[in-house]
Write a protein that binds this DNA or RNA. Structure first.
Lengths: 134, 134
DNA sequence: GCTTGACTTCGAGTGCGCTCGAAGAGCGAC
DNA sequence: GTCGCTCTTCGAGCGCACTCGAAGTCAAGC
């Protein structure tokens, strides 16, 4: 990998609409996350004041959507963002937060799967009932 | 199974506190579900006006918690309860409702599992970083 | 017969996570 | 230069699912 490759890497810089498209969030939600401290920094602005999202921004936002998509509350995502923003030296705290979340998600997944099994059983019953009329 | 066994089967009849204990819900939530039409009928009352839950009540409530636990909205649980309350003849509608829910839950489970994988990857990264200090 | 405590109804309040709308600025196309 | 579009900030509003509190009733135990 040459230095040239690095310096010539196209510097993406998306509008909020494009970032919304790329992340699957709405522009409203992107602004809300920024306001609420879920992003690592205030997003860069163009001279017009419009937001310009970098690839790093998008990467972080994708991590946020993974945490949110697994049920982590906003307030806890913010705590995690606070840790990352604080820089090196608190990796153990981040790890503890993520591990605790992972454990909760695993439990929740198992519970939902068990509920689902029971529901599928119920479906089987109905299928048998409707296919064999008395 | 004798007739005696059937007629002598102890007729459970729990107070709301006991029903809460048995189902993992709060008494507040049990009353709320009843008010909101999630139960098949208004629960029987003792002469004092206090609720008395039967085994059938508990069975239905457990089904409701399975549906809720897999993310079915209150309003849809009520639709399902309406169908069951209406009696025989709409099994296909119930089946359609349950199948649609099952499909949504399966999708959601897969998405959460995928998010979880990504999070576990992140955890691995942190574990490697903290165990091999530069 | 009085206290205690579990229950009743009813309506209001809470927490979460967005979601929306108003009012205004900047900019490219014509 | 003005139209139309996208963006800006700010604050209010919403939907969901509970959750809570007030005020009153009832039955059992002392």
């Amino acid at each position: 990998m040459s230095v040239a490759t690095q310096t010539e890497r196209p510097r993406v810089s998306l509008s909020i609409a494009e970032a919304a498209e790329a992340t699957g969030l709405t522009t409203h939600t992107l602004r809300y996350y920024e306001r609420d401290g879920l992003l690592l920094d205030v997003v860069d602005r163009a001279s017009s004041g419009h937001r310009r999202y970098t690839e790093e921004d998008l990467g972080w936002i994708r991590m946020v959507t993974r945490l949110r998509g697994t049920g982590m509350p906003i307030r806890e995502v913010r705590q995690y963002a606070d840790l990352v923003r604080a820089g090196d030296g608190n990796e153990d705290a981040r790890l503890a937060l993520l591990r605790a979340h992972r454990d909760r998600v695993r439990l929740e997944l198992a519970e939902v799967a068990a509920h689902l099994d029971a529901i599928e059983l119920k479906i089987d019953l109905y299928e048998r009932r409707t296919s064999t009329p008395t």
